[in-house]
């Protein structure tokens, strides 16, 4: 979806959150000098196009006790990776799941699944579950734990 100027202003005005007032879309509309109907129409269009994934509460995993995040990576046979990737994505403990290119010989992994747990032992237990699901299609695996945030910025939009 190609966003126009008004869409982009709406994204910038709402990406940090909705106002906690009775009529939040109207409050945003007033800020942007457009109508509440237009705000709702544009949000609905972005949602239909997948530009807006969802509206709601974005939990802080760390504050909720999910202190370990492991990027699990797997070398899965190309023939089965998409079907298995779909199954892995549906697991409750997986927050992101992607197929990405290998860089042989340094990096044989093509399936990336981000796993959250209260501690590393929980993440390791989830890895065991993933291993069982992937079965013989998986030839090698690893997990990369994060140990520091070096930079984090808000959403930037192109186009």
């Amino acid at each position: 979806m190609k966003l126009d100027v008004a869409d982009r202003r709406l994204v910038m005005a709402t990406q940090a959150g909705l106002p906690l007032v009775g009529q939040p879309y109207k409050a945003i509309a007033e800020q942007l000098d457009i109508s509440a109907e237009e705000v709702m129409r544009r949000l609905a269009a972005m949602q239909a196009a997948g530009v807006l994934r969802r509206i709601g509460a974005v939990p802080n995993h760390y504050a909720l006790g999910y202190r370990a995040n492991g990027m699990t990576v797997w070398d899965v046979a190309d023939a089965g990776v998409d079907e298995l990737g779909e199954r892995v994505g549906r697991l409750a403990f997986v927050s992101h799941c992607y197929r990405r290119p290998r860089h042989l010989p340094d990096w044989p992994y093509n399936l990336f699944a981000m796993v959250h747990g209260r501690d590393r032992a929980e993440v390791e237990a989830y890895r065991t579950e993933l291993r069982a699901i992937l079965g013989p299609a998986c030839r090698a695996e690893d997990v990369l734990y994060s140990s520091g945030i070096l930079k984090k910025t808000g959403l930037r939009i192109g186009g």
């Binding site: 979806m1 530009v51 994934r53 802080n60 930037r156 186009g159």
Partner: peptide, 26 residues
């Protein structure tokens, strides 16, 4: 309740979650 959950940082935010990949950028 939402105000409190945000203040206590249980929530990162409350509102739209956008997909940057679908916005025409890279």
């Amino acid at each position: 309740r939402l105000k409190r959950l945000l203040k206590e940082r249980v929530l990162t935010r409350f509102g739209p979650l956008y997909n940057a990949d679908r916005m025409g950028g890279s």
